[in-house]
Design a binder for these strands. Structure first.
Lengths: 345, 345
DNA sequence: CTGAAAGCGCTAACAA
DNA sequence: TTGTTAGCGCTTTCAG
């Protein structure tokens, strides 16, 4: 029923061995740069391999060594900007190192539970990169049971390596920027903290918001934080909520640029001027933030993917160290959506 | 030097065989649902496998069958919205079918030529999905030399299956919308046709632009099409070019939503009203198009990834057919960035 | 520094 | 329907 993938038998290590006049073991050693091969022999082998366009069979070497030279990347939403950036960064590092990247997208409830029940990456990867997820205890246990090196990017999993940013401080930076512009009535647009995905981020950024307000001696108000589902649409709705109140804030901090850009859209439709009537600051420096002239707090996302991959490669090369926690710097990017507080409309 | 990935020898097919009181072949047959196993035996095997938490070694089965159960996806820019959507769609289909997805990001010149010279997917995948690329003759030859099933999404490679949209018609749809609103002075913002990536798309969308103008009896003007590098920044600059002319168009068609959103940004900064002074229509229905209230032509991107993957799975299951060319429908999405032509500012 | 031999875990004839 | 046998292509002892 199934068709043969390769018609002609492809060249094997034995073909190379014959052509170079050596044994298969010597070919193997030469090709992997083992030290105990004479330079002369190695050159002959390399030459023969080149002439035959030899490509080693990963399956065979995996079978015997037990190492797959692949790493699994677990993301909740492969198509969102943040995640595709992380994946892109990781891919660039892994590709160069000769590692395959296996993508596991566990967005919806169904595929998530299926993933943790069957753990499809068993026997397929040497290590795992978890991206920006909060795992339940059961999920953590499942992951740990793999017995594989694990590193988190933008999420946290106690006892394992991590690379990320200081979300609380980043949020505080954004809000301090507003305070410095004279704003004292500041609202926050935020994702739903009950949402498993992004939960930790949401909580940290809310904490930063409150901290910066506290520093400025601004009392917390009820309804100061509006919760809506994460994303552009959530931002649109959250801003509609704010606008339906009797008294408007003079500035708004949005948990993510996606939500900020949605909020911006609502403001435009309402005819409110940004930043004349309301200042708006986001978080992430999404690729579309410039298109909205959005002031935001930038984080190096692609870079986090690169670093996460690097850490894993280090672990696979035998490095042992206590769980590292690499915190990359965030940076306020001032664009046109924020300005000094003015008289209200 | 390297550390063992699995400390304890993991359970093999022989362990399952022993526990079920059968031979390894019977286990193999049972697990793969072969027909020539008695229901009773199969159940015993499945039970034993379950109890031992047995997971077959992909490496071993790849080695003996020659099939990897993996497919390679080649994209020029893994992190761009369009490509991550396609990859997401393909992943969802492949994951369910038990296939791994190997991502090959060949964005820059260096990694692109490296990819085609070494063809790292040799022996690693059963089939290839090429996304929205124009390949040179040499690249096509390299790809063909793999002897693997190949399908294109959003690109074209004669003789191979393809799923995509009618870019020319989509562009024409966008421009007809403007014409219907009374616009006759319409400019186009477009990517650089000399850019290898996206070249075919650029040319097709330009053709659609010209066709719709022709239909409306509007003469082509010199400088009617502005070329800038693809993306938000390109859109910003392209609109700056248009605005620096003595006579402004009343409407602009942008080749992509990214360029359109960039253009929108420039218009806002200039204080021009959209659509009061200038109407703007994009292409793609990018996730951020709603955030800019951008009228656009939607194409089903995620779906194209799904279909591309389906086609490949069909081919791998032995289906043979002439090269299919699935053309998915595009759809005009009218938002707030277009309106009837008005007096000029 | 090099080769011979064994075996990784599975599947696919072939027999029974 | 089931078991036996022989590899798939490589790496890794262990000798030499």
């Amino acid at each position: 029923m199934t068709t043969p993938i390769v018609a002609r038998r492809s060249v094997s290590i034995l073909d190379v061995a014959r052509r170079a006049g050596v044994s298969a073991s010597t070919v193997s050693r030469s090709l992997r740069g083992a030290s105990n091969v004479s330079a002369d022999t190695r050159d002959r082998v390399l030459q023969a391999a080149h002439e035959l366009a030899y490509v080693p069979s990963p399956a065979a070497s995996r079978l015997v060594t037990g190492r797959t030279h692949a790493i699994g990347v677990i993301v909740p939403f492969a198509t969102r900007w943040y995640f595709s950036e992380v994946v892109g960064g990781a891919e660039s590092v892994l590709r160069v190192a000769g590692y395959d990247l296996l993508l596991y997208n566990i967005g919806d409830r169904a595929s998530r539970s299926h993933f943790f029940q069957t753990l499809p990456l068993r026997r397929r990867v040497d290590a795992v990169l978890g991206v920006a997820s909060s795992f339940t205890d059961a999920e953590q246990q499942a992951l740990t049971s793999l017995g594989l090196p694990l590193t988190m990017v933008g999420g946290r999993f106690n006892g394992f390596h991590r690379v990320g940013i200081d979300d609380e401080m980043g949020a505080a930076t954004a809000v301090r920027h507003l305070v410095r512009l004279g704003h004292r009535e500041i609202a926050m647009i935020s994702g739903d903290p009950d949402d498993q995905v992004g939960r930790a981020t949401t909580l940290a950024r809310r904490a930063g918001f409150r901290r910066a307000l506290g520093e400025a001696g601004i009392d917390a108000q009820p309804d100061q934080v509006v919760s809506e589902p994460w994303g552009v649409r959530g931002g649109i709705h959250a801003m509609e909520h704010l606008l339906s109140r009797a008294r408007l804030p003079t500035a708004v901090f949005a948990e993510s640029d996606e939500m900020a850009l949605g909020a911006l859209q609502t403001l435009r439709k309402t005819g409110l001027d940004v930043p004349g009537h309301i200042s708006l600051v986001g978080f992430d420096d999404h690729e579309m933030a410039p298109a909205g002239d959005l002031t935001t707090v930038a984080q190096p996302v692609y870079r986090q993917g690169e670093l996460g991959a690097r850490i894993l490669l280090g672990l696979l090369a035998g490095e042992r160290s206590a769980a590292t926690d690499i915190v990359l710097p965030t940076r306020l990017v001032v664009r046109g959506s924020t300005g000094p507080v003015q008289g209200r409309p």
